[in-house]
């Protein structure tokens, strides 16, 4: 009998199960995405998943690790899906491939593979691509416009030359431009009504709550993220309603919901102590707001997450919880 030690009873859980639940929680958002923006995202997801698995397998082989065990853990697929969902739905296929390869090979395996990466791989991919291909990464279908599937696939697979006029900037970008043009901005509800992004965000919210309920993530990160972002947005909006969008717009626009429940909650690169999680997520929320409103990029989640990733060791070290019985000492 091999040497084994207690506990002999183990909870029925595994990394694969955790990752599967994350993927499951993304499904409502994806469905909404397909219905409201178009089925192109399915192609993106497929491309990203295949690329990720291939890259993961190659890296595991190179690093001489057990293939079956790690390929099945689902972490590469989660990364792939996050890349696909944060990239524009009409990005050319090779852009997605480049992003995923970067995430899996450089951001994950070169740092030691599962559990070792100090930065969120999907966000590294996003940051690298938006810096390298700013134009392609900024082309989102116009708000409320449902794309014809054929056309979308054409764009993705590059069958027909892309017409710049067919896509527009993200709603955030549009807003930024609009505000700069001093056009003012209407209340939250009209914006919500016809906006695909916001509906998808609400679906992500539902998926995120599912994760909290399943105890895959704790409440700390989403709450602090959305709280901090909403608070800052609200204060600025109250101060100058004409110059700043209302907080609901910010929370439901761009990648805020996806970021709060699925990206900032990446356990490997995030803070781990309860207080640390609050600080980390609040930092991400504030930075994301500042970058998206005052910075030059359409959204700030990726950079905010990466910046806060750098601070994680410091945050964790200074927020060690007091152990049992030591609270008043």
């Amino acid at each position: 009998m091999e040497f084994s030690t207690s506990p002999y009873l183990l909870k029925d859980t595994s990394v694969r199960r955790v990752m599967t639940q994350v993927l499951l929680a993304l499904v409502p958002g994806i469905i909404a995405y397909v219905l409201l923006i178009g089925p192109g995202i399915l192609a993106q997801l497929a491309i990203a998943t295949l690329t990720a698995l291939a890259a993961e397998a190659a890296m595991l082989r190179l690093r001489d690790k057990p293939l079956a065990l790690f390929l099945g853990d689902g972490s590469a697929v989660v990364t792939a899906w996050l890349v696909a969902l944060t990239f524009p739905p009409v990005a050319p296929w090779w852009l997605t491939v480049v992003g995923v390869l970067f995430a899996i090979i450089i951001a994950k395996h070169l740092y030691g593979g599962l559990g070792q990466n100090p930065f969120n791989p999907a966000m590294i991919a996003f940051a690298v691509c938006i810096v390298s291909f700013p134009a392609l990464m900024s082309q989102w279908p116009g708000a409320g416009s449902h794309l014809a599937p054929g056309q979308q696939f054409d764009w993705i697979f590059g069958l027909t030359p892309r017409l710049d006029g067919m896509t527009s900037a993200t709603p955030l970008d549009a807003l930024k431009t609009a505000l700069r043009a001093d056009e003012g901005h209407s209340g939250p509800l009209p914006f919500l009504a016809g906006n695909a992004q916001a509906v998808i965000a609400l679906c992500y919210l539902a998926g995120g709550l599912f994760l909290v309920w399943r105890k895959v993530i704790t409440w700390h990160i989403p709450t602090a993220f959305l709280g901090a972002m909403g608070l800052l947005a609200g204060l600025l909006w109250l101060w100058q309603p004409a110059g700043f969008a209302n907080p609901v717009f910010h929370l439901l626009g761009g990648g805020a919901m996806l970021g709060a429940f699925f990206i900032a909650t990446d356990p490997v690169s995030g803070a781990t102590t309860p207080r640390g999680k609050l600080i980390f997520a609040a930092g991400v929320g504030l930075l994301a707001y500042i970058i998206r409103v005052f910075g030059g990029y359409p959204d700030g989640i990726a950079f905010a997450v990466l910046i806060m990733n750098i601070c994680v060791p410091l945050i964790d070290m200074t927020t060690q919880p007091k152990v049992f019985g030591m609270k008043d000492q």
Partner: peptide, 13 residues
């Protein structure tokens, strides 16, 4: 002394 846990990753492959 308790032994260092054996890491069995290789065996699965």
């Amino acid at each position: 002394k308790w032994k260092y846990p054996v890491v069995e990753l290789k065996r699965v492959a």
